[in-house]
């Protein structure tokens, strides 16, 4: 009964959505604001990856919010799982291959992650992606050495510093440029590593922060 009702309701909803979607042409150019980004983004920000430019500059405030949400996710998990004990389950030590592989892979994964977020303004990728990669490095190391813990305090400090510095950079922009998060640093030459003003700086911070948070979340859930 419940299934049928749910199904009927969903069908009605999706009929509505179908009508709506049929109004939105697929694959056609319907940009208005982003035209501006595509045409002037490079000039205005010096970052060749427009998505990055949008994420960190035009819509930088969203990104700040996004960081906050991830932060909340991490703390929230901490609140929910506070004082949760693993019931003394014996964790089997993993096989030798995993053990050795994780030791071997961990620095490379870390390096790859760092590469991704440092090049976020030039190529596909960025802080979040890089952070995720870093976190996966931690995941592997966890799988390799389930008994080893990274210090929770360390994670906290890293994520806290990342967030605070992000805001400080934004406030610096407010102080010097008159707008929060305004791009105060010189733009540099397009397509070089040092370009895009504050964007790479922010992405580095984001990368570190996201890495720390995701790693924190993974560890929390693993326990």
């Amino acid at each position: 009964m419940k299934k049928i009702i749910s199904f009927v309701l969903l069908v009605i909803i999706f009929i509505g959505i179908y009508f709506a979607v049929s109004q939105i042409p697929y694959g056609k150019d319907k940009m208005s604001v982003s035209k501006h980004y595509l045409n002037n983004g490079v000039k205005e920000n010096g970052a060749s990856n427009i998505v990055t430019s949008v994420v960190l500059n035009y819509r930088g405030f969203d990104t700040l919010g996004e960081l906050t949400i991830l932060f909340i996710g991490a703390i929230g998990l901490g609140v929910v799982l506070f004082g949760f004990e693993t019931k003394g389950k014996d964790i089997k030590s993993p096989s030798l291959i995993l053990n050795a592989g994780s030791t071997f892979l961990f620095p490379f994964i870390l390096l790859f992650g760092i590469y991704i977020f440092i090049h976020g303004h030039l190529s596909p990728g960025g802080g979040f992606q890089g952070g995720a990669v870093i976190a996966s490095g931690f995941l592997i190391s966890y799988l390799g050495y389930p008994k080893k813990r990274i210090s929770e305090k360390g994670i906290h400090i890293v994520e806290s510093l990342g967030g605070t510095l992000f805001i400080l950079i934004g406030l610096l922009g407010l102080l010097l440029g008159g707008y929060f998060l305004s791009n105060i640093l010189p733009k540099g030459t397009v397509n070089t590593l040092v370009s895009g003003g504050i964007i790479p700086l922010l992405y580095v911070l984001i990368g570190i922060k996201v890495g720390a948070e995701l790693a924190g979340i993974i560890y929390k859930l693993m326990e």
Binding site: K2, L9, F19
Partner: peptide
């Protein structure tokens, strides 16, 4: 919770029906 989700879907469907 399933019923509650049903309520939410119902509300949306209700608004859509009104429109249609």
């Amino acid at each position: 919770i399933g019923t509650y989700v049903g309520y939410i879907l119902f509300f949306l469907a209700f608004l859509i029906i009104i429109y249609l």
